[in-house]
Amino acid sequence: MLFGWWQYEFMRNAFLAVILIMPLFAMLGTLIVSNGMAFFSDALGHSSLTGVGIGVILGLSEYKPAMIIFAIVFALLMNRIRNSRLSSTDTVIGVFSACGVALGLVLLSVSGSFSRYQSLLIGDILSITKSEIILLTITLAAILILWLICFNRFNLISISPEIASSRGIPVGLLDNVFVISVAVVVMLAIHWVGLLLINAMLILPAAAARHVAKSARSYLVLTLIFGLFSGLLGLWFSYHNSFAATGPMIVLISGVLYFVTFFLRDNR
């Protein structure tokens, strides 16, 4: 009963996907939440529709590169306008998010292929293949190396961009490196997680961990634990209840963790 799922290859692949995606989401999610960029990553997810649309219009057989390139351009542009402080951040992100979805829908409906890509909305983690798992492993290794080298600088920028800048840290460059990392990971994962829920998976474990974490270290460790717990329990639960889609189950469990930790938070 407990390990019956292991006999199926798609479940083993999904299991590996969860233990690769959740650490990736934990690393990015903690900084996204600390930087107040939850809507930023949400808008980025929405832009994936346009990326796919461009891929389809260009007649590409593999639309992922088009999605990633478009998402990077989209993220850098959104970041530039966000940092110019000419308009309030939520307005800028709202505009980008809406335009990303609308343009994507127009491109896909013009090419008559919207129904084919509807699965992008909710994703399907059970469809992940071995080669995609290898790609995820490489991405995780790359982000881990980036974090080992740059985390302290990212952390300081998050605490005070002015202090970071006064110490010669290239704030603008690292900010762009961070949003590019988010863009790439979101685009790689969206096919399995779905654009409706990807942001919830990115931010919910981190938001829950913030309630109870007492340092940057425990923040990341707890986010990782909450992410893996939700991911694996969600996968197991949906296997035993075929009516429950995996992605939404994972998000629901993360949501429960968020509310439980909310009541456990240290209010002193």
């Binding site: 080992l148 302290n152 605490i159 270290r217 990341l220 460790v221």
Partner: peptide
Amino acid sequence: YDMLASMISNYPVF
């Protein structure tokens, strides 16, 4: 600690 250690070292505070 997280703030100050981030300033003096690249050894990740996590």
